[in-house]
Design a protein around this nucleic acid. Structure first.
Lengths: 208, 208
DNA sequence: TAGATTGTTAATCGATTAACAATC
DNA sequence: TAGATTGTTAATCGATTAACAATC
């Protein structure tokens, strides 16, 4: 007896934020309705792929008409769990930490930075926008107390694994890692990487 | 008569910088030799995949022994065209522009930031580390004059497409885009995206 | 009704993995 | 020689695309 196969591919999940982003620009342009064809052209992918991806989660369109932009945004936000606000912490108050602490796009997209930590005594207590940098020593307590699930780490590569281990110990479930090093995490913990060097080195392959 | 199929998949190219990064940490740890198995464990991928990827470019290992770390690094840098230094410019002198202008990892990885541009008169002439911010108006001339091929853009989403069009017009061939919007570029131009929100939204799908 | 576009199936295409002969 | 590990093939697995009935 075949199981109902309801495992949605990770690669599909990865495209949903892309769709959401494009739809939000349509709202800014006061466009009410779109189609898989139009979205596909904007994003440079195939219309069939967009329809197939969306159909994993329900029937959000109308034949002959397409998709209501606002409605599809609402559905995507529900699917991605960004129809509420997630509190996020930052570890590392260097240049990158400063940059992401002030990043203006998190708010509208479901994320709120609530604390910045560092273990350097010279940085503890300094101000970044609204927050003052807190001692990493109090980090686990604050994670537990505020039930925070998401962290962004911007510490030196040499410290990244240790910091991640501490974060997971304290209850963090998702990590966005700016340190240029591969981190090991147990199953069930999400980790994503941002490393501009990787992108640049991929592009130079094709240059000259 | 079958053509020699020497088109290397883009997805393979994307993994090479990851291998390179891991190998460089091995050098720091004074490890001389590695194996596909060890690399695979570090990176959380399969050993077969690493061997297959590398074999696209040559035979870099020895049976029974594995790979000489320094030698493989040298080969990967050649393949990726990062065995020389690429000059890179930054457009946009806001928080993100500041952050990447001071990013410490570019130098050792084949990239050198040589200029930062902005079109805001309040920012033009201000200092970021060693450079002063230049007027975007002079950007095309400088790109041509210095034969710059790579740009990183950190401007508002609303300006990103226009800036990219200008850059390509001036001769830029590869763009790392920090603006949270999909950009259209002609064939033959490389573009890569960095958007922390996308990564966060992908992870929240799996949370609770 | 005619035109447009969805959701879905089946076919195609491409990527990953398992396995092993070769060989260091 | 025995053990280890490569490079490569073939099999498997998964993702994308083309096509079209359904239907707005």
């Amino acid at each position: 007896m075949p199981e109902n196969n309801n495992e949605i591919p990770d690669i599909v999940i990865g495209r949903l934020p892309l769709y959401l982003r494009a739809l939000q620009y349509m709202v800014l342009e006061e466009q009410m309705v779109t189609s898989s064809k139009e979205l596909a052209e904007r994003l440079g992918i195939s219309a069939a792929q967009i329809r197939k991806d969306l159909s994993q989660f329900g029937e959000f369109g109308k034949q002959g008409t397409g998709y209501q932009v606002e409605f599809l945004i609402k559905k995507l936000r529900q699917i991605l769990n960004v129809d509420t606000i997630w509190d996020v912490i930052i570890i590392g108050a260097g240049d990158i930490g400063h940059g992401i602490a002030r990043y203006p796009n998190f708010g509208a997209q479901g994320f709120r930075v609530v604390a910045v930590f560092d273990n350097n005594p010279n940085k503890i207590g300094t101000k970044i926008g609204d927050f003052s940098v807190q001692d990493s020593a109090v980090m686990p307590a604050i994670i537990k107390q505020s039930n925070i699930k998401i962290a962004m780490i911007a510490v030196p590569a040499s410290q990244a694994q240790l910091v991640v281990d501490d974060l997971i110990q304290a209850g963090i479930k998702a990590i966005l890692n700016y340190a240029p090093i591969t981190i090991n995490v147990p199953k069930g913990i999400q980790i994503q990487y941002i490393d501009p060097v990787m992108h640049l080195q991929k592009m130079t392959y094709y240059l000259k």
